[in-house]
Computed example of a mutant assay.
Amino acid sequence: MKKIRPLLCASLALNCLATSTMTWAEEAGTAVPSTNDSDSLYASPQPQKSRLEALTSSLSIRRLDHQIQTLNADDTPFLALYKASETSSTQGCVILLHGDNQHPDWPDAIAPLRNALPQYSWCTFSIEVPDIIKRGQAINTTATADKEEGGEDTDNAQTPTEFELPDQAAIFARIQATIEQANAQDMTQLILLGYRTGASYALTFTAQNPDATRALALIDIDVPKQQNTDPVSEYELAQRIRRVNQPVLDYYVMRSGSEQFATWRQQAANQRVADNATYLQLDALPVPLSGEENKATLIQTVRGFLKQQTTQINQRNTLPSVEKGLFY
């Protein structure tokens, strides 16, 4: 018992000293270090920026940095990959939109088409599309719960025909800036091609700008989804095909749940009244658009569609003159 009392006294003395020190610091206006984690600064993750930096680095290593262009839309720069036609008789230019959380040289669909079409007299512009679902960000479940309990959000409620896709204005501005860049290079025959969610933007842009492009290609179209908000209606998105007067290629991968969406698109296309309202819907079989054989089929399908549905420049070359020899 005698040994415990000195230890207890020492402990009380230390506590008193710490308390008096804190009080003195507060009275003197000295900042006391805080251990609250919320006061610390954290770097916000930027996955799309890192993805594009890796892309440009890869292109530079492969000595393809001459394909990289920086365009501007609404005072905002964005990345575009340009590849010129590899023949002397350029048919026009194809503008490609990649899917969500991808990049302008995505290995499925986008890269094969942007690299192959120039061999068949088409230049290509593959442009950067902002991410819809931001990776690395916390999901706010409160808004979703409020909708489930209290019904739809009246502040953001839109009629079915007036809904907009996520970041629609910004993406449309980029498409328009790319069209102007192509026109500056005397490319008057322009094709808009979208892959996955990029196809939804390509469809909506064409429906709202009927004279901007000559044809539309939808590759495995997918409806954009947003965090904490209701998804875009597949039915209402399909109805926008009714307002497209240009020829349309609808090349999709049949998967579980996509049959009804494909049916709605076909029905909407059947209701078009334009004379040249060609609509070609093809099932790419239930396999992803990867693998050399599948990529070759995709390239051939798009190439055949463009050849049949656009104005083709006569590419026949005259036979070379031959000097007749002694033994002709």
Rank of each mutant, 00 (worst) to 15 (best):
I139V: 13
A10E: 03
P286L: 03
L55G: 04
N317S: 15
I110G: 06
D105I: 00
A262L: 05
C9H: 11
T90C: 14
Q266V: 08
Y279V: 06
V223R: 12
Q181K: 13
T30R: 12
A18Y: 09
M1W: 09
A215T: 01
I299Q: 14
A202M: 08
S290A: 13
I241N: 02
G92V: 04
T301V: 10
L79S: 05
S85N: 10
A268G: 01
Y235M: 05
Y328Q: 11
L192E: 03
P6L: 14
Q119W: 10
Q48M: 10
T35M: 12
C93H: 02
Q158K: 12
N72G: 01
Q208L: 10
Q176T: 10
T30G: 00
I139E: 09
K134W: 00
L216K: 00
D131W: 11
T30Q: 13
K225A: 10
D153E: 10
F78V: 07
A173Y: 05
L12N: 02
G194H: 04
A145L: 12
Q48D: 12
F78Y: 15
Q315K: 11
N228R: 09
P77S: 02
P45S: 04
Q281R: 07
K307R: 13
L64N: 12
R196E: 13
D75P: 02
S50H: 07
L59T: 03
A212P: 00
V273E: 14
A18W: 10
E323P: 00
D105V: 00
A84E: 15
F172K: 02
S233W: 07
A277L: 04
Q46N: 13
A157N: 13
C9Q: 14
T161P: 02
Q227D: 14
M22W: 09
I110Q: 05
V129D: 07
N15E: 05
L306V: 00
M187W: 03
D155E: 11
L55E: 05
M254E: 14
R243A: 07
A18T: 07
N183K: 15
T154Q: 13
S38K: 10
D105N: 15
P47A: 04
Q119L: 15
D131N: 14
D211P: 01
Q227R: 11
F205L: 01
D146I: 02
S11I: 15
L165N: 01
D250G: 06
N156K: 10
T318V: 01
L249M: 03
M254S: 14
R316D: 10
R255W: 09
R240W: 03
A43I: 12
A274G: 11
A177L: 08
D39M: 08
T263H: 09
T206M: 05
R63S: 12
Y251W: 11
R5A: 14
L55N: 06
R303M: 05
K83H: 10
A202D: 03
T23C: 09
A274V: 03
G99E: 07
A268R: 06
Q48N: 04
A207H: 05
V32Y: 00
I191Q: 02
Q300K: 13
D220K: 01
S50P: 01
L280A: 06
I61V: 09
L71Y: 04
S40H: 10
D283N: 15
P107K: 00
L282A: 00
I179K: 07
R242E: 14
V244C: 04
Q267F: 09
N270Y: 10
M22P: 00
Q67I: 04
P160R: 04
F261D: 06
S44P: 00
V94N: 02
T124G: 03
P231Y: 05
